[in-house]
Amino acid sequence: MGHFNGRVSEIRLAASGQTELSVACPPASVPAPGQYLLAIDPQDSAAVLGTPLFLINPSSQGFWAAPLHPVQWAPGTNLDLVGPLGHGFELPGNLRRLGLVALGETVSRLLPLLAQAAQARAGMTLFTDLALPSLPSALEIHPLNILPEALDWPDYLVFDLPLQRLEGLRQVLGLGDGAILPCPAQVLITTPMPCAGLARCGACAVPGHRGWKLACEDGPVFDLRSLSW
């Protein structure tokens, strides 16, 4: 974790209708999939808190960041960057079939895992009802309502999930109370993280089996088995 200088170099419109940022920054500052970089415009004295930036994919200058970000940021905006922060995704070495489940407002934060899966020559299936960007042809795409029938296919699942949807995850997966997932899984919990790990303020608290966890420092990617859902 360190402090870096960065700059917004480009903004593009995503298929979801939201905007994605290209951030020019040193290689050491580029977050791993699921980690985040805290970004602040030092010239904006009205900015109350930093903005967490998640990786979509690396670029020649730095990386493309998933939505959301302040509307006043434009190409040329200088950024103070802190991080990378938090725990990201860690795919197993023997991955054969990866299931990706996007239950938030964007699929972007899961996309960097496609390259890892492709490198492992693993099959990939994305389950989502969201509007989609251009994606590799090797990726199968299915709506969420297929998920309960498809749970036997992946040997590893990754989720992008807003905290408020954790409670209803069993229903989405078609699992009854007490039923367990047939494969290991990791989940990126998206929730406001106002103190970004500095204060243990509790705003991003996630229910775990052994007490509460904090998305800002224990996550935002968790082993799903460690959470109470």
Binding site: V48, C201, G202, A203, A205
Partner: peptide, 23 residues
């Protein structure tokens, strides 16, 4: 003390509201 239940963070122009429960 455990974290507060429900929504804990809301932004508004010039600030934000925090309801943490003082965990």
């Amino acid at each position: 003390r455990t974290p507060a239940r429900g929504k804990r963070f809301v932004t508004y122009p010039g600030g934000f509201l925090l309801h943490s429960g003082y965990p």
